[in-house]
Amino acid sequence: MTRLILLLLLMAAPAAADDPWQGRSAAFFGVSFLDTSTEGDLNGARADEAARVELVERQAAEAFRARGVTLLDLAPVEEDLGRIRNPAKCNGCDLRMARRLGADYAIVAEVQKVSNLILAMNLYVKEVATGAQIRGQAVDIRGNTDESWQRGMRYILERNVFR
């Protein structure tokens, strides 16, 4: 019985060593919302879209935590973050802030609304030590609903980030 347990532990060791998530830390800078639709120009921000941003932020955060990633408190970089409209497109400020926090990864995401029918969602994971993007994907989603946003985020997470 002891040999069987030892054999199982030895077989599991390489898999655990190859896990890029377990025991790592990340600076997750949330989801930026870019409304480039005519509706946004005319009517301004919508409460339902702000709620959807929070919804997919929670979805992504929970998925990373479930994989063993510690999401770091952004308070030490809050002042810098407050000056940035979109951490996904800030000439490496995401990596600089993540480095200051001592993170292994920087995670950025954005949703661009073209219209109520067409939206694009992106999520990227960069390795802080090298600056290299190690995972990430952009998907187009159809429909501006809770379900479509969650489906888009789930697709990115399941088919790319945690593949």
Results as ranks from 00 to 15, higher is better:
M1K: 14
M1Q: 12
T2E: 13
L8F: 11
L9D: 02
L10P: 00
L10W: 02
L10N: 05
M11W: 07
A17T: 09
A17N: 10
D18Y: 11
P20C: 02
P20E: 04
W21N: 01
Q22C: 08
R24S: 05
R24F: 06
A27N: 02
A27T: 00
F29H: 02
F29N: 00
V31A: 03
V31N: 02
F33I: 10
D35M: 02
T38K: 10
E39M: 05
G40H: 04
G40L: 01
G40K: 06
L42S: 10
N43H: 14
A47K: 08
A51N: 03
V56L: 01
V56G: 00
E57A: 00
R58L: 06
Q59C: 03
A63D: 12
R65L: 07
A66I: 01
A66Y: 01
R67M: 06
G68K: 07
V69E: 00
L71G: 07
L72E: 03
L74M: 09
L74I: 06
L74G: 00
A75W: 10
V77K: 04
V77L: 09
V77H: 08
E79M: 09
E79H: 12
D80Y: 03
G82W: 09
R83K: 14
R83W: 06
P87I: 10
K89Y: 13
C90R: 14
C90P: 09
N91G: 15
N91M: 15
G92L: 08
C93W: 09
D94S: 11
L95K: 02
M97P: 03
R99T: 05
A103L: 14
A106G: 11
I107E: 00
V108L: 04
A109I: 09
A109S: 15
E110S: 13
K113D: 10
V114I: 14
L117R: 14
L117G: 11
L117D: 12
L117K: 13
I118N: 14
L119P: 09
L119M: 13
A120H: 10
N122G: 11
N122T: 15
L123M: 12
L123W: 04
V125T: 01
V125Q: 05
K126S: 12
K126F: 12
E127L: 08
A129R: 15
T130K: 02
G131M: 03
I134G: 08
I134S: 07
I134E: 05
G136T: 08
G136A: 07
A138N: 14
D140R: 11
I141E: 02
N144C: 04
T145C: 03
T145F: 04
Q150C: 08
Q150K: 11
R154E: 10
L157R: 01
N160G: 06
V161Y: 05
